[in-house]
Simulated scan of single mutants.
Amino acid sequence: MDVRPDPETSLAQPCIADTSLLSNFVHTGYAYLLHRLLPEPVLLSPTVLDPAEVLLPRPYTQALRSEFLRPLHMASLPGYEDYQAAAPLIQGFALGSGHLWRPVELTSQEAALAYELSEKRAWDRCRDSPGRYRRRRVGPGEAEAAAVAVCRGWTLLADDQAIIDLLRCLYPQVPVVRTCALLQAAARSGHVPCAEAAHLFNEVLPGRGFYVRKGEQVLRLRCSPPRCAWEGPS
């Protein structure tokens, strides 16, 4: 059974985020919404943001474990000027450990499950499941966050379609809250005007390359009341 409680219920328990959803809020200056919506700082696995790498100098030429920090260290390199505006926002959030976010160390069971979820053969277990599941690569940050959510009964904040589909197939009991639903909850709670949240989701994030599609339909945030609506081509 696919369990999809309303966002407010899912957000009342510990929440662990993947890199893509976290970036949607931090890069645009809306990280404060996560702080206001969640009862405690958002939880992050080491591949998303490793505390040991937060204070590394820029530019840092060696491979970074932290997916979230890579744009910060690439901002000064030729060809990556688009990251410059987001760099101070990334740095400010990363330095907010304990207040804006908290690190989570994986247990051996969670690390093993993360590896399993990142392997293509994980999709073999969906062959006899209802629904159509297309094999997609699951990145290490998404796999870690999902593994922790599965093992600890937490809510996953994610917008990567691969890990969302895989969890719906293998672990449908895990609540997943996406960017649109978070902004919808923020607007309903009065943390941001709905028109502003809709502009962020419908205009700003697509301009940064983020949008949610299902066939020819695009997910949009609409107001009166705040809701996430699938819309076809006009």
Score class of each variant (00 low, 15 high):
His99Phe: 11
Ala187Tyr: 02
Asp160Pro: 03
Leu69Tyr: 05
Ser234Leu: 14
Val138Pro: 11
Ser189Gly: 12
Leu113Gly: 02
Ala229Val: 15
Asn202Cys: 12
Val218Arg: 15
Asp2Tyr: 00
Arg152Ser: 06
Arg178Ile: 02
Tyr115Ser: 01
Val212Thr: 15
Ser189Asn: 11
Pro78Asn: 07
Arg213Leu: 13
Arg222Ile: 00
Glu216Tyr: 01
Leu55Gln: 15
Leu200Ala: 06
Asp124Phe: 15
Leu183Ala: 05
Arg152Pro: 01
Tyr211Val: 05
Ser189Cys: 06
Asp128Phe: 12
Met1Thr: 04
Arg102Met: 04
Ala197Cys: 11
Ser23Leu: 14
Leu69Asn: 04
Pro140Leu: 14
Leu49Pro: 00
Asn24Gln: 14
Arg220Met: 08
Cys126Tyr: 10
Ser108Tyr: 06
Glu119His: 07
Pro226Ser: 11
Arg208Met: 15
Cys169Asn: 01
Phe68Lys: 04
Ala149His: 01
Leu100Met: 12
Gly29Leu: 07
Ala197Leu: 07
Leu72Val: 04
Arg121Gln: 14
Ala112Ile: 03
Val138Gly: 11
Cys180Ile: 03
Pro5Met: 13
Glu231Arg: 08
Ala186Glu: 05
Cys180Ser: 09
Pro193Gly: 05
Cys169Pro: 02
Ala185Pro: 05
Arg4Trp: 01
Asp128Trp: 10
Ala86Glu: 15
Leu205Trp: 13
Val150Lys: 01
Pro130His: 11
Gly153Asn: 09
Ala75Glu: 02
Glu40Asn: 09
Arg65Ile: 04
Ser76Thr: 14
Glu196Phe: 06
Ala187Ser: 04
Pro225Lys: 13
Ala87Phe: 09
Leu156Gln: 09
Pro130Met: 11
Ala149Val: 01
Ser189Ala: 15
Glu53Gln: 14
Leu166Pro: 00
Asn24Val: 05
Pro57Gly: 09
Gly79Phe: 15
His199Glu: 15
Gly79His: 13
Ser189Trp: 05
Leu113Arg: 07
Leu117Ser: 07
Asn24Glu: 11
Ser189Glu: 12
Gly29Arg: 01
Tyr60Leu: 09
Ala186Arg: 08
Ile90Pro: 13
Arg152Gln: 14
Ile90Ser: 11
Leu219Phe: 07
Glu110Cys: 07
Ala162Asn: 08
His35Cys: 09
Glu144Asn: 05
Ser118Leu: 03
Val26His: 04
Ala122Val: 09
Ser66His: 07
Ala63Cys: 04
Arg227Ser: 12
Ala52Pro: 06
Ala145Asn: 09
Pro175Asn: 05
Leu89Val: 06
Asp165Val: 01
Ser76Pro: 07
Arg70Gln: 14
Tyr133Lys: 00
Asp82Arg: 15
Trp101Met: 12
Ala86Ile: 07
Ile16Phe: 00
Trp154Lys: 01
Leu43His: 02
Asp2His: 03
Arg208Cys: 05
Thr19Trp: 09
Val174Lys: 09
Pro206Arg: 10
Leu156His: 03
Trp123Lys: 00
Val176Arg: 15
